[in-house]
Structures are given as structure tokens and as C-alpha cells.
Amino acid sequence: MGAYVVRRLLQSVVVVIGVTLVTFLALQAGGDPTYLFVSERASLEEIEATRRALGFDRPLHVQYLSFVGDLARGDFGQSLSYRQPAMEIVLEALPATVELTVFAMVFALLLAIPLGVLAAIHRGTAWDGSITTFSMLGQSIPSFWMGIMMILFFGLYMRLFPISGNVPFLAPLLSGDVVTAFTNLPRTIFHLVLPGIAVGTYSLARNTRLVRSSLLEVLEQDYVRTARSKGLRERRVLIHHALRNAWLPVVTIVGLEFGFLLGGVVVVETVFSYPGIGRLLFAAINQRDIPLVQAGVVLLAGIFIVLNLVVDLVYLRLDPRVKLAGGRG
């Protein structure tokens, strides 16, 4: 097991370096960002001086190697637009996004499991029909549109939820201010409702279908039939036999889900003016703030890799039949 984890982590280093190289080349290919850092009326000499000051006059490979060299020392460099250490800025924005993603994931899973189970055990009835229809709809509404509609309806018309912004919980908690964190918590959750639903709906819909279909499949399996035929009560069969095995594909999804939800936050954070990492990186890409984008992308990739490793290990616990050798990459 230890060797497996070490091997996976080594592979991850390759992945992270690949990620930085792709990011670097992609952002550099569009030309250098000097123009974003001089005023509208700057002279050509001024632009040239700024280009030198920012280091964009150096050959590309020199720029990348110096970046990788700094990276090896854990230095992501300074954000070009904020003039602050890039990693610091990214880490500052991370807690809000984690709150949003976790909320969305909990929302998507907590509702998906009962809905999926309900649809599966009442297969073919109106329950099944409406849950399936709902999950189909949920998979076909773009999140930005849903976000704006929820703002207008639940925020503005019904006045039930805050329209935009956030109240931090994790940030004060991490800085040791437990009192503020928990005083904030109700309002934190309150601010998360609309953006969280906007981020999580697609996943909820997909997971509902997944739970339903994997449960249906398990219910067809021999051992469940055997259990039933032994006269066990339906609920016992469901919980002890069927659900336990239906968990596997759900666990697999959770790891990938995080990366997927992170993709959704770019749009939703913009709609809800939510100060998270998605909006930060979107702005940074537009600004060609390469160090900031690099720091963000490396951080997200790191989280994604670790999470998937954890999922694989959990998977292993749940289903010892899975062999280590293959891994899931």
C-alpha cells in the first residue's frame, strides 16, 4: 500500500509539471502581457521599460526555467497585477470556493441518494417518472441562467436569500478566530444557498440518475434476490445488501465531482459576485497574470490529485477485489 501511494505521488509530480508547462505555453502564446500593465497613454519607451521590468523581454525557455526553478523552492512568484505573492492570493480565495463546492457536493449527494433510491424502488411509477424528468431537466439548464433566475426570483422577488457576496466561515476558522467563524456560520450557509444550488444542480441530477441505475442493477443481482427469497424485509435488503454495493460507483464519482464542480464555480462565482478562486483565475487569465494562474492551477491540480488518491484508497477499503496495480491514474 505504501509503495502504491509513493508511486502515485511520483506520477503526480509529472502531472503537476505538465500542468504548469501547458499553462505557461498557453498564456505565453497570446503574446506578452506588458500592455495590461501600462496606462492608456503610455509611450512606446515606457512600454519597453515596463516589459523589461516584468521580465517579458527574456526568451521563453528562460522565463519558464526560472519559473520552475522558483517553483522547486516553493516560490510561485509575485502576481503581476496584485504585486503580492501569488500563492498567498490564491490561498486567500480558496476557502470561499471550498465552502461553495462542499455545499454544492453535499447538496448534490444528500438529495441524490434519497431521490435515486426512491425512483429505483418505485420503478415505473409516477415517483420514478417525476424524479427522472426532474433530473433530466437539471442536466439541461446552464448554471449561469439558473443563477440569474434564482437571483431574480428568490433574491429579488421573494426576498428569501441574499443575492450576492459571501460571509466567510473557513477563513476566520483557519486563522483561529473560532467565535467569529461560528457566529458567521448561519449567514455563511445562507449566502451559499443560491450559488450552491446553481453549482450543484447538474451534479444532483446526474447523481440521482446514477444512484437510481446502480441500485436497479444491484437489485437484479443474485444475492439480493437470494436475500429477498430468504424472506428478509424489503428495507433490510435495501440497506444491508443493495445500498452498500450501490455505493461504489457513487464514491468513484465524488473524486471526479470535485474537479467538475470547480469548473462550474467560474461561472457561478461571476454571477453571484462570490469571491472565490474561479473568478480570481478567470480574471487572472484575462489579465495574463501568469504567476497567479500558475499558482491557482497547481493548487487545484494538487487538490484534485490528492482527492482522487484518497478516493482510490477508500474504494479499496469498500471493495477489496480492486487490485492496486492498475490504479485509476
Binding site: 502531472v15 505538465g18 500542468v19 498557453a26 469548473g263 461561472v267 478567470f282 491514474g329
Partner: peptide, 23 residues
């Protein structure tokens, strides 16, 4: 090939898409 796939999956897709479309 599989490592390339890992690299891509480690990016949230939308960020990758944004990066390339901006460029």
C-alpha cells in the same frame, strides 16, 4: 498517453477552455 490524460483531467476543464480561447 495516460499521463497526458491525467494532466488534462487535473485541470478543471473550463479553465483549460478559457485559457485556450483567450489565447
Amino acid at each position: 498517453i495516460m499521463r497526458l490524460g491525467d494532466i488534462q483531467l487535473a485541470f478543471p476543464f473550463i479553465l483549460l477552455a478559457i485559457m485556450f480561447l483567450v489565447v
